[in-house]
Amino acid sequence: MKLRIATYNIHKGVSSLRGMPRVHALKQALASMESDIFFLQEVQGRHDKYAMRHADVWPEEAQHQFLAGDSHQAVYGMNAVYDHGHHGNALLSRFPVLSSINRDVSDHAFEARGILHCVVQAPKADLHCYVIHLGLFARSRRRQTEALIEAVQTSSPPDAPLVIAGDFNDWTNELSDSLRQHLGVTEVFDKDLSSRGFGAYMRMLAGRGPKMKPARTFPAALPWLRLDRIYVRGLEIESAQVLHGGLWAKLSDHAPIVASLALR
């Protein structure tokens, strides 16, 4: 089974500098990725102020429904709620979504965060998908990662293929080793080192070899920080790339990651 997936923090569908609506351009950009499953963060479920101010270009339906269109099924996990609207994570799937649950992992009152878990009926296997957006503070991220590990261990069989993707805000790359050790996952940009052999991979885990580094995805105009991730288990990584350049710099402050996978 071949599978193409993408993770993207869409910045609530507005440009990062002037706050201008980019939802229609985002929909075209997502279509150009030709991904079977999208893991999206900062999806605007409702925003009354933008809807009034930009009535001519702001979709009447929620962003996850608008972006999914007729080709994908949309599931939304509402995290942050305020007087004029709410936002959260979303999963768009070309395949049927069998079940979904949104787990609150907010660590304090100023950052509402969640883990959106969906079971997708992909060809030949059910795929467990976790959409993540971790906090801005290191201690919060560590506690949220512990909650993620516990959620995966209790909500998916140990041999089930899975994808964990999203905005981890982990620019110091402190969380990857814990996810690898407890969940047996591989980050899609681990491929170069892991291809050198099992010994090299184990030396890395033990801290005696070169450390794997995720891709740079932020800011989108000139990616420098390594914030976004795709971790997989039970899937072969065929390729992975960051999409950046003039178009992507106008849509969001993050650059998307697209990966081609195959079921083992």
Rank of each mutant, 00 (worst) to 15 (best):
E34Q: 01
E34D: 01
I37D: 04
I37T: 04
I37R: 06
F39Y: 08
G45W: 15
H47K: 10
H47P: 10
H54K: 07
A55Q: 08
A55S: 09
V57Y: 09
W58G: 10
A62N: 14
Q63L: 15
Q65E: 11
Q65L: 13
A68Y: 15
H72I: 13
G77Q: 10
M78A: 14
M78P: 09
N79M: 09
N79C: 12
A80Q: 10
H84I: 15
H86D: 12
H87E: 14
H87K: 14
G88K: 07
A90D: 04
A90I: 06
L91E: 05
R94H: 03
F95P: 00
P96V: 01
L98N: 02
S100A: 05
I101R: 01
N102R: 04
R103I: 03
D104Q: 03
V105H: 02
S106F: 04
D107Q: 08
H108M: 05
A109Q: 02
F110I: 08
A112I: 04
I115W: 04
H117M: 05
H117K: 07
C118A: 05
C118D: 03
V119E: 01
V119A: 03
V120N: 00
V120Y: 01
V120L: 01
Q121E: 00
A122F: 05
K124N: 03
V131C: 13
V131F: 12
L134H: 10
G135E: 08
F137Y: 13
F137D: 09
A138W: 13
R139Y: 08
R139V: 13
